[in-house]
Amino acid sequence: MEPVIKTDNLTIRFGGQIAVDHVSCEIPEKHFKSIIGPNGAGKTTFFNLLSGELKPTEGEVYLKGERITHLSSIERARKGLGRSFQITNVFPNLTVLENVRLAIQSREKIYFQMLRYFTSYKHLIEEAEHILEQVLLIDKKDAIASQLTHGEKRKLEIAMLLALDSEILLLDEPTAGMSLEEVPIILDVIRNIKEKGEKTILLIEHKMDLILDLSDSIMVLFNGQLLADGTPEEIMRNELVESAYLGGMYNDDLAGNQ
């Protein structure tokens, strides 16, 4: 079967530094793949290359067999690539509801309607409320986004992604900086999406133990290179991964989580 996403020798240089180094991988449809690797490994940059925020210096990105390397982030979003951002990236002075409503409006392709009030599209508002219920943010729907706590902003980010209803979800450390109580809530939301079985999901996560049971496969990035790609069991057994990622400086991370 044709992979939904395929990268071929995907590479980007910033000056002399190679942030993503000849990464080739394939992600089948409805697959859940996690990307792990230490800070600065190039995970976010890899996402930026997939979603079109950055253009590669070398290599190609394919979406369902179509080369999309030259397409802008807007065109890729419209083709079904939705992403969340590691650094919270919402509309700070709009309400929570309006943030989500804007995402739904885009999905519904209501782009150039200037002669009706936005409130006349009631179903958009209702759906936004429904999604906010899913991520347990409904009681904050009228709050201004900038006044949310960090964890709430992450939830909003995910709500916007759900609202877009993209076929492919790129989640960049959705639990980063969340309080301990909030992490399971977000993981549950992600698990629910997975269990519906409608989406292909790529998840960047720093803490491996969180995603072991969720993932169909895991790929490990290290210094921009694809170190390993396999099932969670294979990755756990992989000596290279152990020495590069699990060993050395990331010991404390692991100790904290086990």
Binding site: A77, F85, P92, F118
Partner: peptide, 22 residues
């Protein structure tokens, strides 16, 4: 106050994000 105008405000708030929404 139209759907179009709401996107204008979104552009002002955060243009990258508006693009990422398509």
């Amino acid at each position: 106050n139209s759907p179009f105008g709401k996107v204008l405000i979104a552009v002002k708030e955060n243009e990258t994000r508006t693009k990422a929404l398509g």
